[in-house]
């Protein structure tokens, strides 16, 4: 049975950086099923490595700063060996987390990183207009990926 892990991350008090949390929140409403597990967190930490290693597909969701506000980026990512060793103590990027998962638990599952370019990262809990507009598209894309993997095992 496919097992999918959805990880939304970012600072929920920093405007568009909360995008990952919002996406997870929305997706939870639309996708039900034991095959999908949701995690929302401020940072990716080494403690997630074991959970990641047990999944068949991991979907990471975050905000980025590269591009036009509200533009959606989706790409397949691979495990990398950590370059910045000491940062493993506190936080990781998704590729380093996959690398850690592989080193420690022997598996780095298929993974996608979905990001939306943010506009406003100041204090606040609201998404900017452009990033809000991108939310349904990202959630829809994740639903497609999940259904591709699980078929009818998940439902709204």
């Amino acid at each position: 049975m496919a097992k999918i892990l959805v990880v939304g991350y970012g600072n929920p008090l920093r405007g568009d950086d909360s995008f990952g949390h919002r996406a997870v929140e929305q997706l939870k409403q639309e996708v039900k099923g034991r095959e999908v597990e949701f995690v929302d967190c401020q940072q990716l930490t080494p403690e997630l490595a074991e959970k990641v290693s047990n999944a068949e597909l991991v979907l990471f969701v975050d905000a980025d700063m590269d591009g036009v506000a509200g533009s959606i980026h989706s790409r397949r990512i691979e495990a990398t060996a950590g370059k910045n060793s000491d940062s493993l103590v506190h936080h990781l990027d998704p590729c380093a987390l996959l690398g850690l998962s592989h080193t420690l638990y022997g598996r780095a599952p298929e993974s996608m990183l979905m990001t939306v370019t943010g506009e406003c990262f100041g204090y606040g809990t609201q998404l900017s207009t452009e990033v809000s507009k991108a939310l349904p598209g990202v959630v829809h894309h994740m639903k497609e990926l999940i259904q591709e993997k699980c078929g009818d095992a998940v439902h709204a």
């Binding site: 910045n84 060793s85 000491d86 940062s87 103590v89 506190h90 936080h91």
Partner: peptide, 8 residues
């Protein structure tokens, strides 16, 4: 407080 003990 939280501080990265990162690559300094």
């Amino acid at each position: 407080s939280t501080h990265a003990a990162g690559q300094m």
